[in-house]
Design a protein around this nucleic acid. Sequence first.
DNA 1: ACCCGTCCCGTTAGCGCTAACAGTAATGCC
DNA 2: GGCATTACTGTTAGCGCTAACGGGACGGGT
Lengths: 370, 370
Amino acid sequence: MNKPSRRSRGTTTIEDVARAAGVSAMTVSRVINGGQNVRESTRNAVLEAVKKLNYSPNTAARSLAAGEATHIGMLYANPSAAYLSQFLIGALHAARRAGCHLVIESCESEDADEQAEVTRRFATSDVEGVVLPPPLSESQPIIAELAAIGIPVVTVAMGTPAEDSLNVRIDDYAAAAEMTRYLLSLGHRSIGFIKGHPNHIASHDRARGFAAALREYGLDPDEAPIEQGYFTYRSGLAASERLLSRPKPPSAIFASNDDMAAAAISVAHRRGLTVPGDLSVVGFDDTSLATTVWPELTTVRQPISAMAEAALELLLSDLRSRRSGAARHSAERVLEHELIVRESSSAPGALWVGRSRRSRTAPVHTADVG
Amino acid sequence: MNKPSRRSRGTTTIEDVARAAGVSAMTVSRVINGGQNVRESTRNAVLEAVKKLNYSPNTAARSLAAGEATHIGMLYANPSAAYLSQFLIGALHAARRAGCHLVIESCESEDADEQAEVTRRFATSDVEGVVLPPPLSESQPIIAELAAIGIPVVTVAMGTPAEDSLNVRIDDYAAAAEMTRYLLSLGHRSIGFIKGHPNHIASHDRARGFAAALREYGLDPDEAPIEQGYFTYRSGLAASERLLSRPKPPSAIFASNDDMAAAAISVAHRRGLTVPGDLSVVGFDDTSLATTVWPELTTVRQPISAMAEAALELLLSDLRSRRSGAARHSAERVLEHELIVRESSSAPGALWVGRSRRSRTAPVHTADVG
DNA sequence: ACCCGTCCCGTTAGCGCTAACAGTAATGCC
DNA sequence: GGCATTACTGTTAGCGCTAACGGGACGGGT
């Protein structure tokens, strides 16, 4: 009878698995992590024991013993709440799998000194790497400060990643071109475009994609109605007003994100235009806002959660290779986007015909009421 | 010269602090956690050493040694994205402080069996407690399943917490009454109310608060224009339509959350009404939507992040006391709310006067454009 | 026959922290 | 003054896991 351990919490440990498989704990450890130099038969025996005992390693013990990264920082700034929550969920999943903690800090200021100040908090904390979702992924002060401190970074949706950096993004150019082609194929020939914040490279990529698709259809991008926006709902209101106040208003509006698209719908409604009857409106991102507004937005889906997961994985593998002294390598992962067609877009031409009074009131959806 | 430790990661350990303070590691540990039975002078010496060395305990080692909770589950269901992200941020902060991981799962289904199914995932995982934010905090199937498995729960914004349960909330009744009094003090006498989802006790509390304030001003709540909503934007559109289609439309609308208030503004605009000139609109929650829409919403601020933090703290302290065999105790924490006055509310009476064409277009905010 | 390298697996020694116990000094009580 | 009680602090033994190394078995080259 061996004396009972200090606290027997009934959890199965690596020792239990080792006993069940008839090997040492070390071998079990090897099988679980990578598993180099283990005979096929032993590996199977171990895996079987793991499954039978429903064993899952204790992350605390693992990171303690391995001296691995336990804290990953994340610095965010007021993206849309929908984007942030999606991103956090993805990041949390990846963090859980890796057994590391997510340390989040917010940084709303645009001031370089303040940004550096917030960044330095990570230095005194024990974070070993930082994830930078947009729009902070484009912030030079933060990236520079992190480099000075010596903390590895992975950026998300960064347009022009540096040489030895890690980045995750989608192909904004291709996505914007696809969306534009879709509107063109519907028959639209005058498409208003609302640009994103000029500080973000992604904004320019989307604008270039828009222009490229126009050219494919023999249209001159320079004559297209384009207005500057800043990714905010408010800026979308202003840009839409300008677009619809033009002598020859467009039959469709392509906004660089969902917030501005939602604003476009609002402006259209206030002007007595139906969507999509009188005006098609499409967005970008597919945040929850896209399905909140009425009519629901046709938009481009970014796999936000997956991007967060990919970012964390990239960072952690980089951290691992740094520890083992492997050569530094830059890495970029481009994830798939998807065109989501909903109710806010249709063929043009109903512009004058469909303008009935009735259409200016919201329909009562029975699904909501009953 | 002592042999170099296996991995010297340059981090300051509890031993370093102990040496600097001239005490044992155990004493340092005692000072850091609660610190019973430590002489004042020793405590100060330790705290000073901690500060000087900028020491922060290794959470992995701590939870490994103490056998403490390392994984806290959280089950969420499609609340507004703004609510979720706020909540996650608060929960993450608390989790980091406590050195535990947040394991999140989503459960969109309303089906009891499916909810139980998702809940059971926590059983096979090693979560030791679960946080239930609304609307799942009111889900009996989930709470019952968790009780069956034997995992402690803390609910947030649960209206009628059970005997031995943990709950965090605000005083919905008082908050709604305050908001109603505010509208009444502005001069409104016909206030439309959009109720929240009938499954949530909080909805009823808010409705009761509304009615109570009306009575204080000598008005009969039974004659007030009240419509059923379901917390969704869509349901807010329908409810607002019904409210404004009444023979004698109200001069203000009090929606039970911001999403429905935003919908009310949208409907008002489509009908050519200015807000707040022709119609005051107020919401509840102060999610980011409140400042996204134009005009920005007068609303009641719920300290969502703080509520998440409080929930986690409550749960963790309960877990600790369970481990030490202390008596179970139910606990409820009621946090402070706050009335936030913005641009969507004003005195009534401009109903016919201020109805100019000009007001039907959104103003161009120079701050956005320049 | 010997050496050396490769493959596989076990042993040892911690990672940084805290529970439990074991003191030691100071205090209270009759 | 003797003894129990309390207040404080140190010692020991792990928590569950893995890095580092050691060593046996086997194969191929000389």
